[in-house]
Design a protein around this nucleic acid. Structure first.
Length: 533
DNA sequence: ATGGCAAATTTCCCACAGTT
DNA sequence: AACTGTGGGAAATTTGCCAT
């Protein structure tokens, strides 16, 4: 009844089992029941798929332009009873992804050789030379105007979706955010490269990773030169390591070893995290301070969340995820309250039920001017010291800054890279603050200045491929470096004992890690056994 | 009915952490 | 102290399909 050949269904189940960390014996039981193919076949298929994927990459890179991204992957292996040869340890490796470059002009892949090496100026000095003028140190008037109008739109968007009683009709009338530089909707392809047991966190490691990825793409020096420039995203550390290699090997004549093809690009997910930390740290406030910060640390307590340490003086970096959520919860509340104050009626809900779009716009403008603008703060600060309301000033500054963050996140999802740039250019100034931020300020400044001097085609492709869209749906864009992080979390969760081989990592010992879910399942097995007996 | 072939499955081993 | 279970991989065996 069961067929060894017509086993598509069983194959899918088998791949699912492997992906969700089922144990070998579980897979075998299901294989015997006819629900899955055997364990050996599953691993065989995975290898086959991986081979197929790499073969496809090698094909594509011959005709299309590709970009690469890689990220460090650490998996913790825990041992309950440590022995001489069995310790708790981390396995450090690096995973990477190849992505064909999207060309907005054609709507398809950018052709191989579109960006010849000559488009990237030769490195002539040890230190990077940036051709900048005073006007590069501030956002341009146009950029500032665009940012203001986007932020005003965000304010209205949040108000519409959070104020109780807003009629559905009014929500429908609300138009999309003004477009600055939208990446056309498209579906990005991605091809993972085999995991490397290499640590990318050193100069040597970065170079090794780079060379390994290019080799697995089937590129040698000649082929790379024919391919032309290649974007590679990374965090600040990776970026600075690549920059150092470019400097140290500036006289190298071989494209791969001299990193001639590399066009460094600061990963926007890392920019997002820096921006979130910037906002929360700056407005966190101090417990028992005379003046509360705009983002009261008490908000976190109010929400009954796990206490976090934030603020510039913290020993550890502010955890990004809770910070991100906190802004998304707290800012809409500030906005709703702003409308409550300025709607001119006793009940905000009653006002909202009858408000027209014009009326809504009118109040939004007042809220924005009074509670979300630098001008409002300056007006308050001009008062006599005794009349000043520092708490209100702090709240307004928080409102303004948090809106930048919301705008950044929204622009990324939308795929409007022009709006992303506008936030970057204001953050470039704002991040000139304590701790690790000045390095982000520098990186953003460098990126913006480099972009300005790129040849038009290089600039266009750089921007249009800074974000990817795996689903091809509206609001489905995400930063390239986030894609890589997501890949890693997938690998981490499907990692089991012995599975290090699949990550391409050396198998130095057996039996080191049990997936938490597995442990529970095993326990459940035991209970069942004793019941049968 | 048979052989050839490839795919799928089964069997076996490793060797020690983990459990009772 | 006795016993169990672990994933990968090689080798052996079985199964399924096709052509003759």
């Amino acid at each position: 009844m069961r067929s060894q050949k017509a086993n598509n269904f069983q194959l899918v189940i088998g791949l699912f089992l492997l992906g969700s960390g089922a144990s070998k014996r579980e897979m075998e039981v299901l294989a015997h029941a006819g629900l899955s193919i055997s364990y050996t076949s599953i691993t065989g298929h995975v290898k086959g798929l991986s081979k197929e994927g790499m073969a496809r990459v090698r094909e594509i890179v011959k005709t299309s332009m590709c970009q690469i991204v890689w990220d460090n992957l650490n998996i913790a292996f825990r041992v309950a009873a440590e022995r001489l040869k069995a310790k708790n340890h981390f396995d450090n490796g690096t995973t990477g992804t190849v992505i064909p470059v999207f060309d907005p002009e054609t709507g398809g892949h950018a052709a191989h050789g579109t960006l010849p090496f000559v488009m990237k100026p030769l490195r002539e000095r040890t230190l990077p030379v940036l051709d900048w003028t005073a006007e590069d140190t501030l956002p341009s008037p146009q950029s500032a105007a665009e940012l203001s109008s986007s932020c005003f739109w965000q304010l209205k968007r949040l108000a519409l979706s959070h104020i109780p009683g807003v009629p559905a009709e009014l929500k429908k009338q609300f138009e999309e955010c003004p477009v600055v530089d939208q990446i056309p909707l498209h579906k990005s392809e991605q091809y993972p490269v085999p995991a490397m047991k290499l640590d990318e966190s050193t100069l040597e490691g970065t170079l090794e990773v780079y060379i390994t990825i290019l080799r697995s793409m089937g590129l040698d020096d000649e082929a790379l030169e024919a391919h032309g420039l290649m974007f590679d995203d990374g965090d600040l550390l990776t970026d600075s390591l690549k920059e150092k290699i470019e400097s140290a090997r500036r006289n190298s004549t071989t494209p791969i070893a001299g990193m001639r093809a590399s066009v460094r690009r600061l990963g926007l997910f890392h920019g997002e995290m820096a921006g979130g930390r910037l906002t929360v740290n700056e407005h966190w406030g101090k417990p028992n301070s005379l003046w509360a910060g705009g983002l009261w640390w008490e908000h976190n307590k109010l929400l009954k969340r796990k206490p976090i340490t934030a603020g510039w003086s913290g020993k550890k970096a502010t955890p990004w995820k809770p910070a991100h959520e906190l802004i998304h919860i707290s800012l809409p509340a500030h906005i709703v309250d702003g409308f409550r104050i300025y709607c001119g009626q006793e009940s905000l809900e009653a006002w909202a039920k009858t408000a027209t779009m014009d009326e809504f716009d009118r109040v939004a403008r007042i809220v924005s001017d009074k509670l979300f603008s630098t001008a409002a703060v300056e007006e308050l600060r001009a008062k006599e010291a005794s009349d000043r309301d520092i708490t209100l000033e702090n709240s307004i500054l928080y409102n303004r800054d948090a809106l930048f963050y919301i705008e950044f996140i929204h622009a990324i999802k939308k795929g409007d890279i022009g709006r992303v740039l506008n936030v970057l250019s204001i953050w470039m100034v704002m991040m000139r603050t304590p701790k690790t931020m000045p390095r982000y300020a520098d990186a953003m400044f460098e990126t913006l200045v480099r972009l300005k001097h790129f040849p038009p085609k290089l600039r266009q492709l750089f921007l249009a491929n800074w974000l990817v869209n795996l689903t091809g749906r509206a609001y489905g864009f995400k930063p390239v470096d986030l894609l890589q992080e997501h890949q890693n979390s997938g690998r981490r969760s499907s990692t089991r004992q012995g599975h290090k081989q699949e990550l391409g990592m050396a198998r130095d010992d057996h039996r080191v890690h049990i997936h938490p879910a597995r442990r529970d399942a095993n326990r459940a097995d035991c209970v069942q056994d004793s019941c049968i007996r």
